[in-house]
Amino acid sequence: MTLDTMIITMSAGMLEAMKIFGLTLIGSLPFGMVIALLKKSRFAIVRGIISAYISIIRGTPLMLQLLAWYFGPYYLFGLNIGNWRFPALIVGFIVNYSAYFAEIYRGGIESIPVGQYEAAEVLGYTPTQTFMRIILPQVIKRIMPSVTNEVITLVKDTSLAFSLAYAEVFSLAKQISASQASFTPFVIAGVFYFVANYLVEFIMNRIEKSMDYYK
């Protein structure tokens, strides 16, 4: 196999990795906020469930969770779902990353001084207006560095899809490396991940800079 074909084959794999990456972000960034807000629920039972969920997700390997989502329906419930591989991956990633984002959001929300809520309340803002107009914009600015960290980790974590034999760039690298007895595919994969994260860093820096106008 020539270098060209390797790169072309693996580019398709990188595209798959980016699909996992994009869908996970689209799902977990908002879902994480829902989790963060539920963790502050009035109902102890809701808070308890959310705490347990976050504990389990953070306390077990993502790879294991992916396997559980993929094989769980069959081994636990005898269900045979067609084409479940990719959906299982995405569900696993979203459920996992939502837990981490939820904790980042919660930290951000709790770091906003109570005076901001009180000022908004006295001015007559509704709780929803207060959150959307006053609290959330400040939270986003504060959590950007942590979110960037998480997003960069996600780029690399897409490689865990190989545990479900999903043909993303890392799985392909392993396959080609074994069949061609060559280390080159791993080098290519490394370059792909690095370039992707370089891009992520660049974009996230731009977003952070755009919020530099206040302190």
């Binding site: 001084p113 901001q116 000022a119 600015k141």
Partner: peptide, 8 residues
């Protein structure tokens, strides 16, 4: 006492 202006 602490003003509590909206910084953003």
């Amino acid at each position: 006492q602490q003003f509590n202006l909206f910084p953003h």
